[in-house]
Design a protein around this nucleic acid. Structure first.
Lengths: 217, 217
DNA sequence: ACCTGAACACCGTTCAAGT
DNA sequence: ACCTGAACACCGTTCAAGT
């Protein structure tokens, strides 16, 4: 579906098209051929506005994540919950974010998005009254949990049979875990039952509260 | 450097060569051309033993991670520390593991490695006396922290100037953080100083202890 | 059963040329 | 300054053919 070009090409338009492709077809959906077709142009035009594919991916991530990390002012505890849920929802809506953020987090030097997330959480950890020596550690624990758990949730949502409802899907996951070798996987089996009465957001927030509880004792 | 072929090709030999390529040149170093050259064979031969590149990557990950998750028996608290440090070291030695594990964790259904890690940690969480309702949440928090923090450490280690020593590198990171905009990044700046007297393993284990709850809670 | 290697479809990126 | 599009180097994968 080639969109007829109405306005001049721009970095913003290119990034916007990239996000659309990623949302529609996942990471493998973003190619320069698909992009040139959608923008009715040639690869050279895109390279005029964007250095390479990595930069494009970073820009797409930044655009989509920006709103989620805006600092709230409801107090540190709810503030952390709000940012965490914002990231959770963003990743749920754009599953490719999970991979992208994981990659950025394990890259050095960091890009622009990751420090923003750290800053947003870290600032509130500080306000929580955590001793200074633990600021970085506590913030790391929260950020890694948020991004990791949200990514896992998105993967689950993505793999659920399109027509099937949630209960069916959770039941299926639960069955897979229960089918594991009882000698090798006693824990996974024990926890499989919990899968059935599982509310993603509630479960996710329970994790946040658990970590918050430990870091504030 | 083409290794002269002395024994017949096998899945094990292929996976071994894949690990060597990944260790030497990172994720981009593993290509079927490099693999065929190193094994002195053609692509068809490899496809006889391995379904596709994804399966090869999974097998490489599994080989290298297997030892780290072997269950210890020193009691749950030290057991978790041992497994965590084992994963930390494995990721430190094979930095491509960080990306690979993150990808596997945000894939559904899970492969073979991720459930093993969950099982290994989860089993000990249970022994710790954590209430049943929190088993999954606490285990998730630990696993995501372990993999995320270890990945970050590996990225740091990888990007340190080859000749430079650790102190120099940490100083450089610290300077980058201190150079951030004071209005937008007060937290990152405040935490930058801690970077200078930073022991990776100690810092990593402090995170584990923080999530576990200090001492006995 | 196992291996060979040419060929295919597709990718990111470049660049001389146009406006 | 911005865009075009053919061309390049490289990728994972296939498959008819050999042993």
């Amino acid at each position: 579906m080639t969109t007829r070009r109405t306005e001049a090409l721009s970095r913003a338009r290119i990034v916007e098209a990239a996000v659309e492709l990623l949302d529609a077809d996942g990471e493998s959906g973003l190619t320069f051929r698909a992009l040139t077709q959608r923008l009715a142009t040639g690869p050279g035009a895109i390279y005029w506005h964007v250095a390479n594919k990595g930069e494009l991916l970073d820009a797409a991530t930044e655009t989509v994540i920006a709103q989620a990390v805006d600092h709230p002012q409801s107090g540190p505890r709810d503030g952390i919950r709000t940012v965490a849920l914002g990231l959770f929802e963003a990743i749920d809506r754009h599953p490719w974010l999970a991979t992208q953020l994981a990659l950025q987090l394990s890259r050095s030097p960091w890009g622009t998005v990751t420090p923003r997330i750290f800053e947003s959480i870290g600032r509130q950890v500080r306000e929580l009254g955590v001793p200074e020596a633990e600021w970085f550690t506590a913030t790391s624990a929260l950020v890694h949990y948020i991004l990791g758990a949200a990514g896992q949730n998105a993967a689950n949502a993505r793999s659920a049979a399109p027509g099937a409802d949630r209960a069916e899907f959770l039941d299926a996951v639960s069955k897979v875990w229960e089918a594991l070798d009882p000698d090798e996987y006693p824990f996974m089996r024990a926890v499989a039952a919990q899968m059935r009465e599982h509310d993603d957001r509630a479960q996710f927030l329970a994790g946040i509260d658990l970590i918050l509880g430990r870091i504030t004792r």
